[in-house]
């Protein structure tokens, strides 16, 4: 037993070193911009860069649209599967796993061929329709996380009883879905939303190949051309990811006990 404890401590210490040292290294590097002393110059330069503001704003907007479209697609599906179409569940679950199986770069390759300017549906024809395609590609990318989060929330409430109660009180389907079910799975939707945000905000492959001015390609560009700004950007990106995960814990806290099987 004693040996086992020592072994555990060794594993944890090596793990902590591996995970914490790069964070310290990145932070230290980001402070080195001014010669001879530590300063936040790299951060100042990054925040003052109009391209940083533009691309971060663009990616935030895309992330919000992705969350909205994702919720509109996933919530009704999960609800009806639970209530009336349980036979479709294996099929739906298989589809939601597809984005984990097919690499993102392959999916976007398919889009570029299927929706190019000479096709029936030329989505890559204009900037706005390409934005739309980017949002759909992000919905696909986030589908496994969004579906799992919402579906877990949907299982934790009694969809049938809530629906029948609302029906007896004379509510129609849209009312039931948006004013009865949706508020009850709000925590699940929010955790799916934050996970989606964390996935989408710095996404590189889709945005780069669809040629949209998103944060991911901007990061790559800065990485290829600058010395200290990339480290500052990495610290910022890490904080954004941390914030998203922290918010998931906050919104998920009340529901977690109920969601456990």
């Amino acid at each position: 037993m004693k040996q086992q404890k020592i072994g555990s401590w060794i594993a944890i210490i090596i793990g902590t070193l591996y995970f914490v040292v790069p964070l310290i290294g990145t932070f230290e590097f980001s402070l080195r911009m001014r010669r001879g002393e530590y300063s936040f110059d790299a951060y100042r330069v990054v925040f003052a860069d109009p391209r940083f503001q533009a691309t971060f704003g663009y990616s935030t907007l895309m992330a919000l649209l992705t969350i909205a479209v994702g919720v509109l697609i996933v919530v009704p599906t999960s609800y009806w599967i639970q209530l009336r179409l349980p036979k479709l569940r294996p099929l739906v679950e298989f589809i939601t796993l597809m984005p984990l199986v097919i690499p993102a770069i392959v999916i976007v390759f398919g889009y570029l061929r299927l929706y190019n300017t000479s096709s029936i549906l030329p989505l890559t024809g204009s900037a706005h329709s390409t934005d739309l395609l980017l949002v759909f590609s992000y919905v696909a990318l986030a589908l496994p996380y969004m579906y799992r989060a919402v579906d877990t929330g949907m299982r934790a409430i009694d969809v049938r009883v809530l629906t029948e109660a609302a029906e007896n009180l004379g509510a129609r389907w849209p009312t039931i879905l948006f004013r009865v079910i949706l508020p009850n799975v709000r925590a699940a939707i929010l955790s799916g939303a934050f996970l989606t945000f964390a996935t989408v905000i710095g996404e590189f492959t889709m945005a780069s190949l669809l040629n949209r001015p998103a944060f991911g390609p901007y990061l790559q560009l800065i990485g290829a051309n600058r010395a200290y700004e990339p480290a500052a950007l990495a610290v910022i990106a890490f904080l954004v990811t941390w914030a998203c995960m922290g918010l998931i814990n906050v919104v998920g806290h009340g529901k977690q006990i109920k969601a456990a099987p």
């Binding site: 230290e28 996935t199 990061l219």
Partner: peptide
């Protein structure tokens, strides 16, 4: 957090380290 911290920023972190 770390499982989501991939992509371009991760490369920056290791370059800086």
């Amino acid at each position: 957090v770390a499982s989501q911290f991939a992509g371009v920023p991760l490369a920056f972190a290791f370059l800086a380290t």
